[in-house]
Write a protein that binds this DNA or RNA. Structure first.
Lengths: 165, 165
DNA sequence: GTTATTGCAAATGATTTGCACAAGG
DNA sequence: CCTTGTGCAAATCATTTGCAATAAC
């Protein structure tokens, strides 16, 4: 994990008159330990495996804080729960491609896309603050050989499967 | 409303062995009577003002049916409820710009955006099925004179205000 | 010492679902 | 008739919140 993240959160915390706590440090540690997307519940589970154990409420509240501090981004994968993406610090303008066949999410950057979007936005009389592009697509490679094993259930439900608590 | 929509739903209904009902006709009528975005609850309220009255469950189920039949699209405006957009039949590839100042949603089409997205998608080895671009932006016109009246509350909550039932 | 933070459990709000009755085909 | 659709109320599920106990600063 980028060692600078705790510090960047500190700056925000100072500015707002908030407090640095063990729970916040630990959550930041866990959030940025991988480049994987996750939901609040998934993160809560990951943290529960730890000796310490942090309450669900604190997990939710800290995620909101990180989003507010612009260290973490919420993305919408269409499954009725907020997914968090820790990779915007490294790639501030990346986009998401979701494979309809297997549900895999691929991140990609393309400067032309941002340029064009900004240009169109300006033409409309606005200044773009945040752009969210999600492309849902089928895999060409698999198109001929059939498709991913989890295709069926996903196609049926139309969305990512939910988990029980 | 485009008179062809009931017929297009009929085709889908036939194909799936489903049934044409008064409730479905009425909901389709209401959904496509304006080009406004709406939530399930908002639509339910609109319909409740009608003499007939249709149950909330039926409204939700019929919206899901319309989405399945590809006559209606779900969009995410970031307020934790599904918003429905009835305008994709007329403008199959439009995008949304959300004004951070006042929350207004502006629809726009730009063929270059779709071309570029498709191109990038192909380069990644996929075939785009659906593209969703949301641009959050500030209004340049208002930037100097101040901002919209509802700016403050929206900025504070960070999302569109919710309504109670 | 204040004031922010945490944990817990209860509350909320959108959406879904089980079931008995109604109604298409 | 035989299924699918509807309405109702209860259930779900992610997320939020009130409040008393704790912990930063």
């Amino acid at each position: 994990m980028d060692a600078g993240i705790q510090e960047r959160l500190d700056v925000y915390i100072q500015k707002k008159g908030l407090r640095r706590t063990g729970q916040r440090e630990e959550i930041v540690e866990e959030v940025f330990s991988k480049d994987e997307h996750f939901t609040a519940e998934e993160l809560y589970d990951r943290i529960r495996k730890t000796t310490s154990g942090i309450s669900r409420a604190t997990v939710y509240r800290t995620l909101a804080l990180l989003v507010e501090a612009d260290l973490l981004r919420e993305i919408d994968l269409g499954d009725n729960q907020t997914t968090y993406d820790p990779n915007f610090l490294d790639k501030p303008a990346h986009n998401h491609l979701v494979c309809i066949d297997c549900g895999k999410v691929i991140e990609f950057e393309d400067s032309h896309i941002e340029l064009l979007n900004d240009c169109v936005t300006r033409r409309l009389g606005f200044r773009a603050v945040r752009e969210t592009l999600k492309i849902e697509a089928t895999c060409e490679q698999l198109r001929l050989k059939g498709s991913c094993p989890n295709l069926l259930e996903r196609r049926l439900s139309g969305r990512r499967l939910r988990k029980k608590r």
